[in-house]
């Protein structure tokens, strides 16, 4: 017994020593971590899997919401953050951060109503704002019926679904509603997280889609890939030009085309409620945020290589998930930005 005790103690000591020495020997962790936007998670995770197979470099991207991405890159706990809300110049300068777009996509109002197929419901910004303000509470409200005279809408209460975490999807959505509805602007405003007048909160685009799928007569807003991949009903929208448009790559592209990237500093440009005739009204860009003087240069280099690879080889994957790849002129502008702004 004495010996068995001794050996178990010896084992514990040896094990503790082994763990401690592993720490000591390699103070540097080996993974490259990005975190943030769930809006881009579907495509970034596809990219990262493909990139890992091609190069062996592992980009660990965690979908924790844009708010989380911004917070974690500021805290320096990840190699890059991803956000669908651009940071302003003051913030970027204060933290020594730079930002560049990685992909463009569309946010759609998504719903779950028996008998109403995806793409069959028409909504406009005012109605959407009133639903999210809690002023429209039933699906057969005159405002909705007026937009959808042919639809058979139930007299059921609307369950509003929003995000529970800080989100760039929320930023673009609330930015759009602020542009359309003065009341929304005054009462709620825009941001990655806002004080919701009504509704339940889902975590990430994932969580919102899951709730919409599960709760009858609900409405929410998600990146289009989430609605499409999960067969969730989505609405078509009346845009700034007064046309009813579908959420398609062509219409996201139409909105993106109105963007004047050349004059934007740090690519700070929000394209909601874009003016084009076919433009999808809630089209959003996602940005990658990194330190201009990265503390871990090796990791940052791999991250840049990853995005370069994605711009060049990830376009088909992006399109297959209904994202709009960045136009070549913008990619060129980004690469110049890298050269000028990032010191490595």
């Amino acid at each position: 017994m004495l010996t068995s005790h001794k050996s178990s103690i010896r084992f514990a000591v040896a094990a503790a020593f082994a763990v401690a020495s592993t720490f000591a020997m390699s103070a540097q962790a080996t993974d490259i971590t990005g975190a943030g936007s769930s809006f881009v998670y579907p495509v970034v995770s596809k990219w990262s899997a493909a990139y890992a197979q091609k190069t062996g470099n592992q980009i660990n991207y965690q979908s924790i919401g844009s708010g989380g991405g911004i917070a974690q890159i500021k805290a320096g706990t990840v190699d890059f953050g991803a956000s669908d809300m651009p940071l302003d110049e003051a913030t970027l300068d204060k933290f020594g951060l730079g930002q560049f777009p990685d992909v463009i996509g569309g946010i759609v109002p998504a719903f779950n109503i028996d008998g109403v197929a995806p793409g069959k419901m028409v909504l406009d910004g005012t109605t959407l704002a009133d639903i999210y303000l809690g002023k429209i509470t039933k699906w057969n409200d005159p405002a909705i019926v007026k937009l959808n005279p042919k639809l058979k809408l139930p007299a059921a209460a609307i369950t509003v679904v929003h995000r529970s975490d800080g989100s760039g999807t929320t930023f673009n959505f609330s930015d759009y509603l602020s542009k359309i509805s003065p009341e929304w602007k005054a009462k709620v405003g825009e941001g990655t997280a806002v004080q919701w007048p009504v509704g339940i909160g889902g975590k990430g685009n994932e969580g919102v889609s899951a709730y919409i799928k599960q709760i009858k007569n609900s409405i929410g807003y998600v990146e289009y890939a989430y609605a499409y991949q999960n067969h969730i009903g989505y609405a078509v929208m009346k845009n700034a030009a007064g046309n009813v448009v579908e959420p398609t790559i062509a219409n996201f592209q139409a909105a993106a085309d109105t963007a004047d990237w050349k004059d934007s500093k740090n690519f700070n440009l929000v394209m909601t409620n874009a003016p084009g005739a076919k433009a999808w009204p809630i089209t959003a860009t996602s940005w990658v945020i990194m330190y201009k003087q990265p503390k871990n240069v090796a990791n940052a280099k791999v991250a840049f290589d990853f995005f370069k690879w994605a711009y060049e080889h990830g376009q088909d994957q992006a399109r297959s998930l209904y994202y709009v790849p960045l136009p070549p002129s913008l990619v060129q502008q980004i690469e110049t930005y890298w050269k000028n702004e990032y010191k490595m």
Partner: peptide
């Protein structure tokens, strides 16, 4: 621990 989509056995990795 945060989370990691890839395999790691390094105790200081996410």
């Amino acid at each position: 621990a945060f989370g990691n989509n890839f395999m790691t056995v390094h105790p200081l990795d996410k």
